[in-house]
Write a protein that binds this DNA or RNA. Sequence first.
DNA 1: CGAACTATAGAACGAGGTTCGATAGGATGC
DNA 2: GCATCCTATCGAACCTCGTTCTATAGTTCG
Lengths: 233, 233
Amino acid sequence: MEAVLTEAVRLLDSSGEKALTFRALAARLGGGVGSIYWYVQGKDELLDRAADHVMGAMLEATEKFVDDDDPIEAIRNIGIALYGATVDRPWLGNYFMRNTGFQPNSLQLYERLGQQVLRLNLTPRQSFHAASAVVGFVVGVAADMGQELPEELISGELDRAQYMDRVVAEWRALDPADYPFLHTILGEFEKHRDIDQFRAGLDLLLAGLRQQAGQGMPRRTKHQPASTSVATP
Amino acid sequence: MEAVLTEAVRLLDSSGEKALTFRALAARLGGGVGSIYWYVQGKDELLDRAADHVMGAMLEATEKFVDDDDPIEAIRNIGIALYGATVDRPWLGNYFMRNTGFQPNSLQLYERLGQQVLRLNLTPRQSFHAASAVVGFVVGVAADMGQELPEELISGELDRAQYMDRVVAEWRALDPADYPFLHTILGEFEKHRDIDQFRAGLDLLLAGLRQQAGQGMPRRTKHQPASTSVATP
DNA sequence: CGAACTATAGAACGAGGTTCGATAGGATGC
DNA sequence: GCATCCTATCGAACCTCGTTCTATAGTTCG
């Protein structure tokens, strides 16, 4: 059973979602196609199980962040870790889009992030929205950035830089009068790294969150400078 | 050709991604399976074309926002429109995750949003990050929220409220000591509406952006004393 | 020992994407 | 007028893949 999952994850990681077929998996395990159906009900469940398997590792990796002095810093670290695990697993991002995090390990990760939000002393409604926004942003952007590579890259016809150059060239050919923004950011786009782009976005979101936490909302006027630590759970 | 796309979109919207098969589409058009291959190279391109078709309508719908006095308000409106178009089209969200917006109409929408960002007078790098973050957030969250319904709902076995109740009941059964956050937000989750949740997240992000626009200089938010209550609207 | 349960194997079925050759109808060239 | 292309259409055939079903051991228990 464990073997089925690890081998499935290996297949997914190495060759993408398309490559995970029951026949290929059976071949790897040196068994028959039908055998897998003894362990899982169908392909959906196989994917669910594989995803939760990865999220288990994810949980362990983020355990060390919960004691951070600054809760926002903890949220950032957890978010970055989640991003990292998702971005180079197109199948995982895809899975998140298909199945809200009701799987046990996903739920625990949501809880872990939420506990950091609790330390900000917001209203329950604000806390709910904040945690959801962070998870939504991280998973959404990671799924977006981690998408399967276009075939020119897979086939080895072009490398990443060449492909990027081609896209930039196409954009540069557009009329600057019609596309002033695109031309403004072309230089940035050309040399950008996905991870920096992600972090910048996350920082914007967290800045908004910090601001909300800072200005004591309706009742909770907790006017502490927010850099002093709170007792950890 | 136009007929192929409109019929494809109709199939997708009415019955989901699974329902779009070449055979079904051919039947609707009263033609043969092979004919469709004269217009598109394969299923991927069919999806691409269908998505761009929808984005065209999207563009027209957001045209009226570009003259808003407050650029941030314009960004918010465009974001909300994009969210709306995506959230009830699971196939569209799925498409965004598979293919960065290099399609002509997607690119134009990105440009339109970017032009509003330009009005904030940020550095090119900040502008690039801001526009990307907003698009990433909107599309990511919409794709997440718009996912295909679980089968209990499709089969009509349960309605949305009943399904929600069941999830909430499961969560309530968890130990509050282990899941303090989940129990804090249970009440909110129970009565939440997706659109409100989305707007709240977007507002957080835009608050961060407005703050960045307010303080003239580029600046890292990491580890600053958090006394950043900058003038807000 | 026989019966029931665990676990495995692989043939067979059906759905769906894609390929291929056949077939017109119209335009163009000689 | 006839031959030759180019456009557009059609559906049979092929291949892959998820899933089902039956057969077959081994193992446990009465």
